[in-house]
């Protein structure tokens, strides 16, 4: 008797259940329009189309550690062009969020930038661009922070001189406490998976 090919669908089930828009993957027909449209697909280890195929094939480690899921510029081209109406971008964002929660770091710099971005929204309700860049530059400690800041100093100074940087510290929005209550509740109620 010949052996039947075996399929491990446990990772696909995990994605359907825990990842925002994960179930949309079921609609994918592997045409590759998303990959052909993606501005950064060239720099990805696996194109969006391949990521979807690998989820079905049970390649958990490869997918959740792939830099592809954190290289999204959010241009929405994949979503507007998908002939089967899959919001590819939303699936990729969902995968990135889930991967980070599971302890994978698919792309260190963008993960750090995004984390600071979200922390700031949670802290004050808005984004203070200068504070965001400073925190991002100093992610890896003081020495790296100084090096990063010096590398970007010319651009920062240029923004200040052209009144393109808010110099006063950004203040919390008035409703920050109620916003945080809502966000805490949304974090529990929504998908996205729990932290390990």
């Amino acid at each position: 008797m010949s052996e039947k090919p075996s399929y491990d669908t446990s990772f696909a089930q995990e994605v359907f259940q825990n990842v925002d828009y994960g179930e949309e993957i079921k609609m994918c027909m592997q045409c590759g329009v998303c990959s052909a449209s993606c501005p950064l697909a060239f720099h990805m280890d696996y194109s969006p189309r391949k990521i979807f195929a690998m989820i079905r094939a049970g390649k958990r480690e490869e997918v959740l550690s792939s830099r592809a899921i954190l290289l999204c510029t959010s241009c929405y081209t994949c979503k507007v062009r998908c002939p089967r109406g899959i919001p590819v971008i939303d699936v990729m964002h969902g995968l990135a969020h889930y991967a980070l929660k599971q302890g994978f770091v698919p792309r260190k710099a963008t993960a750090a930038f995004g984390r600071e971005f979200w922390n700031q929204i949670y802290k004050i309700g808005r984004i203070d661009e200068k504070d965001l860049s400073r925190r991002y530059f100093f992610e890896d400690g003081f020495v790296a922070g100084i090096r990063n800041s010096l590398e970007m100093a010319d651009l920062g100074i240029s923004l200040v001189l052209h009144r393109r940087m808010k110099l006063l510290p950004e203040r919390k929005i008035k409703g920050i406490n109620s916003l945080r209550k809502m966000l805490d509740k949304a974090a529990k109620m929504g998908k996205g998976g729990v932290s390990l």
Binding site: D20, Y21, L70, C72, T73, S74, D90, H93, G94, A96, H97, L100, T110, A111, F113, G114, R115, F117, W118, N119, I121, Y122, I127, L183, A186, A187, M189, G190, K191, G192
Partner: peptide, 12 residues
């Protein structure tokens, strides 16, 4: 904006 998904789920 574009990168909040790193720290937040879709509902947030």
């Amino acid at each position: 904006a574009s990168v909040s998904y790193v720290g937040a789920n879709d509902l947030s």
